[in-house]
């Protein structure tokens, strides 16, 4: 079993605008899993994700980190969705780990069944991940997910949140933000795009189940993602990680902007990165300097209408949500000068 440090070393490397570099600046045992020669390549090349897919990037880092943390004793259950479709058109598969897809809405229950089988067989060294997109998690798979939390099954559930049903052609999910254009929330009428005051926060709902570990992460900080996955795999019981994964196709963004958009979502306050244990908030990723939500929105065509003067009220609403998040989760230190 590899030694996994309790905390991960922070490197400040803001000059490049990314946190994915900087591995060499870290102590050897803090370097990223993906940066090691013995990474498992769980989600291997040859899959059919779009250029710039945040989900493919996130899944590779998350599963490789889980593989390292479990000494490669890992089984994954996958919900129907992009991740399933682009990785496994028979007879090809991009997975080098035991992997099963059953249905859209049951990944958490299938994961629970796998964990139960392993327990019955005395193979609790083998660990289980269930994963899906936001539609498969926050909507259709929500009942099974809550059941898995309720029973505290020994499963890590990873939700790759790209804020809509991308696989079926970008329809609204309960993770779609206000004002966002989707195929079912078109930017027409007096309140274009998705309605405000709708949707739900599954991380907060997960916390309300008092499960041992809940975290949110974003693909701009893959080192943090690896750390959170590693931490999650060091805990038994039901765990939940929601990963923010920009979708160039669904969001109308440049494939080369995926990581940048993910970073801006966090830095504007719209996507807080938090950690919680047993229902208590235990950590937040601080923002050094809050960026205006407009900086985040302007890189995505799904929000193009928001930046028109006629819809200034929508921009204000989104900014207010970001500001509320910053206050609620204390995302900015007082000495940061924003409070």
């Amino acid at each position: 079993m590899p030694q996994i440090p309790e905390t991960h070393q922070k490197v400040r490397f803001y000059q490049t605008g990314t946190l994915t570099v900087g591995n060499r600046l870290l102590d050897a045992d803090h370097r990223s899993v993906q940066g090691t020669m013995d990474r498992s390549n769980s989600l291997d090349s040859g899959h059919r994700a779009c250029q710039g897919c945040g989900e493919a990037l996130g899944a590779r880092f998350a599963i490789d980190a889980a593989m390292r943390a479990t000494n490669n004793q890992l089984i994954a259950a996958n919900a129907t969705g992009c991740l399933e479709v682009f990785t496994t058109p028979y007879p090809e598969t991009a997975w080098s780990i035991p992997w099963v897809h059953s249905l859209f809405g049951n990944a958490a229950a299938v994961g629970a069944g796998i964990a139960a089988a392993l327990k019955a067989k005395g193979r609790e060294d083998v660990r289980v991940i269930a994963q899906g997109g936001d539609g498969g998690t926050t909507d259709i798979g929500f009942g099974c997910l809550s059941g898995m939390f309720d029973r505290n099954d020994d499963v890590l559930y990873i939700c790759y949140n790209n804020e809509a049903y991308m696989n079926t052609g970008v329809q609204r999910s309960s993770a779609t933000p206000g004002a966002a254009r989707t195929a079912t929330t078109m930017p027409v009428g007096k309140d274009p795009g998705n309605a405000f005051n709708t949707g739900k926060s599954v991380p907060l709902i997960a916390m309300a189940h008092l499960i041992p570990y809940v975290a949110t992460a974003s693909v701009h900080d893959l080192h943090d993602l690896e750390h959170k996955v590693t931490k999650a795999m060091g805990i038994r019981g039901a765990r939940y990680i929601e990963l923010f994964v920009p979708c160039p196709l669904g969001w109308g963004s440049k494939p080369s902007d995926t990581v940048k958009i993910a970073r801006l979502a966090v830095e504007c306050g719209l996507y807080p990165m938090i950690e919680a244990q047993d229902g208590e908030l235990t950590g937040v990723t601080k923002i050094r300097r809050q960026v205006p939500v407009g900086d985040y929105l302007k890189l995505q065509r799904r929000f193009a209408h928001v930046l028109k003067p006629a819809n200034a009220h929508q921009l204000e609403q989104l900014q207010a949500i970001a500001d509320r998040n910053i206050k609620k989760f204390s995302l900015i230190d007082e000495q940061g000068g924003q409070e």
């Binding site: 059953s102 299938v110 009942g143 809550s146 059941g147 029973r151």
Partner: peptide, 28 residues
């Protein structure tokens, strides 16, 4: 002996759990 009894949230969950456990080689 060596049997896990899962109290699930629905019949959809009941059979889905059996799908996972059967695929892992457990008599379900």
């Amino acid at each position: 002996e060596n049997c896990e009894f899962l109290l699930v949230e629905s019949e959809f969950g009941a059979l889905s759990a059996c799908i996972g456990s059967s695929a892992t080689g457990a008599r379900s």
